[in-house]
Nucleic acid binder design. Structure first.
Lengths: 130, 130, 130, 130
DNA sequence: GTGGTCTAGACCACT
DNA sequence: GTGGTCTAGACCACG
C-alpha cells in the first residue's frame, strides 16, 4: 500500500480508498485479514491513530469487520442497495470534473473516451484475481 | 450566484467554479464586468476577504482581470490547447468517482451513460446563450 | 453539560447522547449554535480531540452541521425515515434489558410500568421548551 | 449456544447472558450440570480462557457453582427480592433505548407496544419448558 | 497480540 | 476565531 503524505487528501481517507480499490479489483475478498493497525502504521511510517481512524471509518461503511483481540477482516462489498442518493452525490462530483474537461476544450466524444479509459484502467487487474 | 455554506468545498472555490460555469455556458464572455469584491460579499452575505481570495485565484488563472479604478472583468477562457497535465489531474479525480460507481454495483455501460447524462445536463443550457 | 469520566461509556459518546437528549427535550432546536470544540473541551476539562470526535460523529448522523470557520450548529432531528432496521437494533437491546428485569423477578406489568416511568422522565422537560 | 464473534459485546459476557436466558426460560434449572470449560470452548471454537472468565463471572454472581472433581452446576436464580440498585442501572439503560426510539419518531404508545412485544417474545418459549 | 479511547500538543485551511 | 488532521505517547479490555 502506498500513500502520498503531500496530498491534500487526508491520509486516513487515502487508506480507505486503497482498500476499496483492492476490493473491486479482486486483490482482496471477503474474509481476508488485513494488517493490524500497528503493523500498517509501521509499514506506512505513520501513527497508529491515523490507521485506526481509517479502519473505523471502513468498519462504519460495512467494508471491514473487527474481531476483538483477533484482528480486522474484509466484510465484502455491500451491494444490497444500489443507493440512488449515493449515485446522485457522485453525479454532482462528476459534473465538476466534466466542467473542468469542457473548460480544457474537450468535446463530448473526448470526455466519454477519457471516462472509458479510466474505467478500463480500474477493471484492468480484475480478471487476474477474481 | 448561489453558494452552500455547509459544503465541505471552500466558499472561495465555489465562487471560482460558478464563474467558470457561467463562462462555459456563455452567460459571461470576455470583457464582461463582474461585481466588485464588496458587492458580491454583500450579496452572498459572506466576508469580503473570502471573495477577494476567490478573485485573486481567478486572476492567477488568467480568467479575470482587474483594472485599477475601473473594476474587474472577464479575460476569457485562457487555454486553447488542452493542458495534458491538467487532464491527468482530472483523470485521477474521475478514477475515484468511477470506483465509487463500480462499488455501487454499476457496470461500464451504466457508468458511461451517467457521464453522458451529466455532460448533456451541462451543455443543455449552453446553446440558448452561446 | 455533565460527563462521567468514570463511566465505561466513552466520553465522546456521552457528549453525543447529551446533545440528543437536549434535542428531544427541546432545549436545543434547529439552527442553534453549540459551543466550539475548544470551549466545550475547556468546560469539560477534556482534550479538544475528544470533543471533535463527538462532534464529527454527530455530524455523520446528520444531527449537527459545521460551517467552516464559523462554528457548529444543530441541524434538527432527521425524522425522514422511521428506519425499521434501526428499530430492530433497539429492540435487540431492549430484549436484554427486559431479560435483566425478568431476572430480577419483575413481571410484565412492572416492566411496562418502569418503561412508562422512564419515558415520562424523558418527556418531562419537553413542554416547557417546545 | 451461539455467540457472535463480531459483536462489540465481549464473548465472555455473551456466554453469561445465554446462561441467564436459558435460566429464565426454564431450559436450565437448579442442579443441572453445564459443560466444562474445555468442552464449551471446543464447542464454541474459542479459547478456554474466555469461557473460564465467563464462568468465574457467573460464579461470582451466584448463578453457578463448581464442585471440584465433579463439574459445574446451576445454583439457581439467586435474588428473590428485586434489587433496587440493579433496577436503577437497568432504568438508565432503558432511558437510552427510549431516547433512541423517540428520536426515531415514535410516541409513548408505540414505545410501550414495542416493549410489550419484546417482553412477550422472551416469555413465549417459557411456558413450554417451565 | 488486538483494537478502542484519551491526552497534549502541533500545523493547516478557512472565515 | 473555527474545525480537521496528524503525531507521539499512554492505558484499557479482550482473547
Amino acid at each position: 500500500m502506498e500513500i502520498d503524505l503531500k496530498s491534500s487528501q487526508p491520509i486516513y481517507s487515502q487508506i480507505g480508498e486503497q482498500y476499496k480499490y483492492m476490493l473491486i479489483q479482486g486483490f482482496l475478498k471477503k474474509g481476508d485479514a488485513i494488517p493490524s493497525v500497528r503493523k500498517l502504521a509501521l509499514q506506512l511510517s505513520i501513527t497508529p491513530g491515523t490507521v485506526a481512524k481509517a479502519y473505523s471509518e471502513l468498519e462504519r461503511q460495512g467494508i471491514i469487520e473487527t474481531v476483538r483481540g483477533k484482528g480486522t477482516f474484509i466484510a465484502g462489498i455491500p451491494k444490497d442497495t444500489p443507493d440512488k442518493g449515493e449515485i446522485l452525490k457522485v453525479k454532482e462530483k462528476l459534473k465538476k470534473e466534466c466542467m473542468e474537461l469542457i473548460y480544457l476544450g474537450l468535446g463530448k466524444k473526448e470526455v466519454l473516451q477519457i471516462v472509458e479509459e479510466v474505467y478500463d484502467s480500474i477493471k484492468k487487474g480484475e480478471k487476474a484475481h477474481a
